[in-house]
Nucleic acid binder design. Structure first.
Length: 374
DNA sequence: TACTCGTGGGT
DNA sequence: TACCCAAGAGT
């Protein structure tokens, strides 16, 4: 770009920053949304009445989770528990079993807890106001606003990562995340129309997901490009800025895959809170900062057996650390006794054919698959 | 406030 | 490969 062109572009951007995106933003975005509305299982057309339950389940599943990953889980969940009452009467283990693989399992526990509260205190109907929704387990500022706007048609401004990115670019907010969050929320609020605020929110999120993407945004396809200060400045791809992240630590552990002669595996339920809370696991040593020698590791084994080290390790990436697991395998008789330190009360024998549908997180399925190789 | 809490796909 | 990131909430 020549110096003259850059100067012209910059001057154009300055004028946009003064006028800002404004009252004309919502109509332009809603026209785009109406023309190309995506067909999603939780989405409603203009002549349909939204089911707050479906909106709630979808919004919780979509937290930090891609649309593609959510769709099959949403279908299965709604088929199994179509109403608040049905969910409130379910077993938590069954809910965790359906949720297994989707991640962030506190969402499933909170969803279940929330269903109980709504069934008991709200006549099995979700409250309409953001304030009341916020009091419920698993419903934070984003989800309260989303349910209020999408399911009940109230004026509310749910702000997720997409909206933050779109707004940061529209107004060329250079301040990095997360410090800029309050300002981005306020700016998003100024753009939200009194009518169709739910559609507006969904349109902003669709725009962020398909056009105003984190990398290489398709500005030529964007219905708001003429209002976008960052695009005018040529800095859209650099926004929103983020603080640099530290290194991801590594933890090491040894898992014990106990195969009973009748085809059952030994699994154990994890504590009800924290990482993979209330989900099933392959019993293992604690996850520490270094490998343990075989003899040392096997002192934590759940049964006395001839432990065979399976070749290779299982590696799994969590949000804030990487796990490296070595797997030991043993074939044991059906009357084997569990050691007390294995917490027998939490242990269960599950047949290999029944693993599907159980509350096994992905990392544990990986460990089992690795341990059963050959 | 900053950290915890999963997983899979994109670059 | 090693990041980044996705319709966030709880503590």
């Amino acid at each position: 770009m020549t110096a003259v062109a850059r100067k012209q572009r910059s001057a154009r951007a300055e004028s946009l920053i003064e006028t800002k995106a404004g009252p004309q933003t919502a109509p332009a975005l809603l026209s785009w949304y109406d023309a190309g509305n995506r067909d999603l299982p939780w989405r409603y057309g203009p002549d349909e009445t939204p089911d707050p339950y479906r909106v709630w389940i979808s919004e919780v599943m979509l937290q930090q989770t891609t649309v593609k990953a959510v769709i099959p889980y949403f279908e299965k969940f709604l088929q199994r528990w179509p109403t608040v009452k049905a969910l409130a009467k379910a077993d938590l283990d069954e809910v965790l079993g359906v949720w297994a693989g989707l991640g962030y399992y506190s969402r499933a526990r909170n969803l279940y807890a929330c269903a109980q509260v709504v069934a008991k205190n709200h006549k099995a109907k979700l409250p309409r106001s953001e304030t009341e929704l916020l009091k419920l387990p698993g419903i934070g500022p984003y989800t309260a606003a989303a349910i209020s706007a999408i399911a009940f048609g109230a004026r509310a401004s749910p702000v997720d990562g997409n909206v933050e990115r779109v707004v940061a670019r529209l107004f060329a907010v250079r301040e990095p995340m997360p410090a800029s969050k309050p300002r981005l929320r306020a700016l998003a609020g100024t753009l939200t129309p009194n009518k169709r605020s739910g559609d507006f929110a969904q349109a902003m999120m669709d725009l962020g997901a398909t056009v105003c993407t984190p990398k290489r945004p398709s500005c030529l396809m964007c219905p708001l490009h003429s209002q976008c200060a960052a695009h005018a400045l040529g800095i859209e791809e650099t926004l929103p800025g983020r603080a640099i992240k530290g290194e991801r630590p590594v933890r090491y552990g040894s898992a014990f895959l106990v195969l009973r002669e009748d085809g059952h595996l030994l699994l154990r339920q994890r504590p009800s809170a924290g990482l993979l809370g209330a989900m099933l696991e392959v019993p293992s040593t604690a996850w520490g900062e270094a490998w343990l020698a075989k003899d040392e590791a096997c002192r934590s084994a759940p049964v006395h057996a001839d432990w065979w080290p399976v070749a290779g390790n299982v590696s799994h990436i969590f949000t804030h650390f990487r796990l490296e697991m070595q797997v030991f395998r043993a074939l044991v008789p059906s009357d084997v006794q569990l050691h007390l330190w294995a917490e027998p009360d939490r242990c269960r024998w599950l047949h290999r054919r029944d693993l599907q549908g159980s509350a096994l997180p992905s990392v544990m399925k990986k460990i089992i698959a690795h341990g059963l190789k050959e």
